[in-house]
Design a protein around this nucleic acid. Structure first.
Lengths: 143, 143
DNA sequence: GCTAATTCCTATTGACACAGTATGAATACG
DNA sequence: CGTATTCATACTGTGTCAATAGGAATTAGC
């Protein structure tokens, strides 16, 4: 039931972009330094975010990345699902017909409830909420 | 965020034992047949349940397994944590000091909420609830 | 135009977990 | 004794994770 580093880093990356947004593009190297994450690994992750148009990139010297929408427009769920893939605890919760024992499977109830609980959390928290939290409760903009 | 087959099979196994309990030990072969799971793989899984005294075993011919407590005494969380290991989405949620960036990590809030949501589900459902559900809503005792 | 900084793209790697299979020993009922 | 069963351990193929590596393409600033 772990969230992999890919999803975790993606969230921190987006949060870093949101917090350090001043209109200028933010370079990946800076993010990597602040977040203490391998920049080469971050490259792969931001490439996914870029292809999904979650961020926009500016190439060349003084280039970097910017959020393409306001922080309120991203839920944690959007970011995690994009980078992690599905958050469902088992396949049968979302793919119809992935399990022919489905009708008659009591365990299925557990998975559905788990799925709902997880979605309930990640789809309710936006990047803006996290920025608020970081600024208010943490003070410094550490992420 | 997947639950592996180990945890899933363990839950079905325990449920099968609960549903098919008539005082006599239930052989693993029968469970494997009903659940359509490799009996050799189930052996490994039940060995974990056995060592944790979740089931008791009776060796030799006509042997098998029995739940060692009443179904109400097992939560889904107990079974999944035993077989899957921790259900926490990230290590920092449960191990103090596993992340030195913790204070100041806004993302941490997400992980804590996720953890609470997951625990809220799995620790509230007991094996007895699943047995009820199977008998009432499903009719046949398929699992 | 040149250089340096940056994004972009693809391949490779080592470690580990997953999902079983395989083999045989120990035990106990009839 | 023979058969059914649990118990213990080792092995294996596949895939994912978490990077690392190398270089191509692009662009700002001098």
């Amino acid at each position: 039931m772990r969230i992999s580093t890919k999803g975790r880093y993606a969230l921190r990356l987006m949060l870093d972009l949101a917090v350090n947004d001043n209109g200028e593009p933010v370079s990946l190297k800076d993010i990597a330094k602040r977040q203490e994450i391998s920049d080469k690994y971050l490259e792969q992750i931001i490439s996914v975010l870029n292809k999904a148009k979650f961020v926009k990139s500016i190439r060349g010297a003084q280039g970097g990345y910017l959020l393409s929408r306001r922080p309120e427009a991203y839920t944690v769920g959007m970011i995690l699902r994009l980078t992690e893939g599905s958050l469902a605890p088992v396949a049968c919760v979302e793919e119809d017909g992935s399990c022919e024992r489905m009708q008659g499977c009591a365990a299925n109830m557990v998975w559905r409830k788990l799925n709902d609980a997880v979605n309930g959390v990640v789809d309710e928290i936006t990047l803006a909420d996290l920025v608020d939290f970081a600024k208010r409760d943490i003070g410094e903009y550490m992420i």
